[in-house]
């Protein structure tokens, strides 16, 4: 059937391809090229070699943002996955109103980052006002604010994926473990967790990617304040492009580094955890 269809390329593929070229391929290639250039608009570029990358790696803001993002990601990934998994364990038992609980826990995930950020900004400032401080007085408030916000947003999402994984664990295996005299904790560690390893892979991957790419929540909650101490990578790139004239090239170089980090994490994560999966 392939031959008669080949003539239909223009109808089936061309519309998507044109949009894909405009919105992704051309900007991507231009982005790589421009990261080696000095420019203010995309048409007046001048090749400068690696100087943008050197400026990016010696920029204190960029290194701070990178370190802050890593610190954020480590804690957020841990808390979100542990809480999500515990909730999933609770909700896969015979409990009344499981659907209602699931609905409520998942709901924050549908709210956009900007709106979420402002909801928590007013909440957290409300609590901090009782102590006579505001969120922008100390970066640690912004840090924990971001952690709480991210947990609120993603726990329900991660929980849903773990529930799907837990429901696939066959009851025969669990019963066999029970008959063999395994305690609840042993069953959990030795049977359930290895069986849901594929879900754990997916959830780790999702939380890491989401933590590193976070932008809207960061912008709305703290805007990077005080004095850029809570700026994460994506926001730092944005600031380099749009808040400082003449640094577009450095911004683009940072963006390329950011892309390599995000893509690299995605690959490593998949390779590492795929090995531990148990076929069922």
């Amino acid at each position: 059937m392939g031959k008669s269809m080949k003539r239909y390329f223009a109808i089936f593929v061309l519309p998507t391809l044109i949009a894909f070229l405009i919105a992704f391929v051309i900007p991507f290639v231009m982005g790589i090229y421009l990261s080696f250039c000095d420019f203010t608009t995309v048409t007046n570029s001048e090749f400068v070699g690696l100087s943008n990358y050197i400026k990016a790696f010696t920029s204190k803001e960029f290194l701070n943002a990178l370190w802050f993002t890593v610190k954020f990601a480590v804690v957020a990934i841990f808390t979100i996955n542990v809480c999500g998994f515990l909730l999933a364990l609770m909700l896969t038992q015979k409990i009344k109103g499981t659907n209602l609980f699931r609905t409520v826990f998942f709901m924050p995930n549908l709210i956009g980052g900007i709106v979420l950020g402002y909801i928590w900004q007013s909440m957290i400032n409300g609590v901090l006002a009782e102590m006579g401080v505001t969120m922008l007085m100390d970066p640690k408030y912004g840090y924990w604010g971001l952690i709480i916000l991210m947990n609120w947003q993603l726990i329900g999402y991660i929980m849903i994926i773990y529930i799907a994984g837990l429901q696939n664990v066959s009851t025969d295996v669990l019963e066999a473990a029970k008959i063999d005299g395994a305690s609840r904790l042993q069953t959990l560690c030795k049977v359930t967790i290895p069986m849901v390893m594929p879900s754990i892979t997916i959830c780790l991957f999702l939380t890491i990617a989401n933590s590193f790419k976070m932008f809207d929540q960061n912008l709305a909650l703290t805007g990077g304040g005080p004095s850029n101490k809570t700026t994460m990578l994506a926001l730092d790139i944005y600031n380099t492009f749009y808040e400082r004239v003449g640094f577009e090239g450095v911004g683009q170089a940072k963006a390329v580094i950011f892309f390599i980090i995000v893509a690299g994490i995605a690959m490593t994560q998949l390779v590492l955890t795929r090995k531990k999966e148990v076929e069922n």
Partner: peptide, 29 residues
Amino acid sequence: RVKTKLTSALYYMFVFSMVVPFQMIMFTM
């Protein structure tokens, strides 16, 4: 359904675009 070098190249390009963060292309786009 149509297996040519072009279509498989396209497939891999679409998959590749999924790991590219928006910041990478925001300025040029």
